[in-house]
């Protein structure tokens, strides 16, 4: 009972935390979706030495635990002369990490587009960039929505780890409230609730794309 009151009275802390989580995730997606698409084009089209190098880099990044990457960006880069404040360090590590996964997701999704309708596009004189923009990407947006949605949820979850490098995101806020008021349960439950809410929004988006897919592909 007391706990709920604490949460209510610290609502501005929670809102600040949620706003930071949202801005980090949205900023990350705004960057990593286009970069991930470009990365997937390189993974698909580039001549071999470059493509191989890219594929290795993507695989390597996907093997690194996210927390370690955040440490390297926040504590390691200053040694190389690049000092970022926590939010920017958080955005950078989240973006690099998510981009690696998205590049792989998009690459697989490109391959799943039926080869015969890409061939038809060539036969009708569509240039390569038109084929990506008009034939491949619109289909990928529809068919890969569930995997992309999963990745977005993973990114939301990963963003919680950024509290370790003192980003004042939602988990940081819950921790702060709980430590200051000696009530662990309610603040963390409230944070869980807010994370769930974000996931529901993502899932609603995915379900919507699923309906579009059913309408177009049967």
């Amino acid at each position: 009972m007391n706990g709920l009151l604490v949460v209510w009275e610290s609502r501005d802390v929670f809102l600040w935390g949620a706003a930071n989580t949202l801005s980090l995730v949205l900023g990350c997606l705004l960057l990593s979706i286009p970069i991930g698409i470009l990365g997937a084009v390189v993974l698909t089209e580039a001549p071999d030495p470059l493509r191989r190098l890219f594929a290795e880099a993507v695989d390597l990044l996907r093997c690194v635990p996210f927390l370690l990457l955040a440490y390297v960006v926040y504590y390691g880069l200053p040694e190389l002369g690049l000092r970022l404040d926590p939010w920017w360090a958080g955005l950078m590590s989240l973006t690099v990490y998510t981009t690696a996964y998205l590049a792989e997701i998009f690459r697989a999704a490109f391959r799943a587009v039926a080869p015969d309708n890409i061939e038809a596009a060539h036969a009708f004189g569509l240039s390569r960039s038109l084929i990506y923009r008009r034939i491949i990407l619109p289909q990928v947006a529809i068919t890969a929505a569930p995997v992309i949605g999963n990745q977005v949820i993973t990114t939301i979850r990963d963003s919680a780890l950024l509290m370790i490098i003192t980003v004042q995101e939602l988990t940081f806020a819950a921790n702060f409230v709980s430590a200051n008021h000696f009530t662990p349960f309610a603040p963390f439950a409230a944070a869980v609730g807010l994370y769930l809410l974000m996931s529901f929004v993502v899932e609603a988006g995915v379900r919507r794309m699923e309906r579009v897919r059913k309408g177009r592909y049967g």
């Binding site: 039926a114 036969a123 240039s127």
Partner: peptide
């Protein structure tokens, strides 16, 4: 690509763009 615009093709399995 631009030369191909003067030759159209109809495929055995249609190859329509599903989206």
């Amino acid at each position: 690509a631009s030369t191909r615009t003067s030759i159209a093709m109809v495929f055995q399995h249609f190859a329509l763009w599903p989206h």
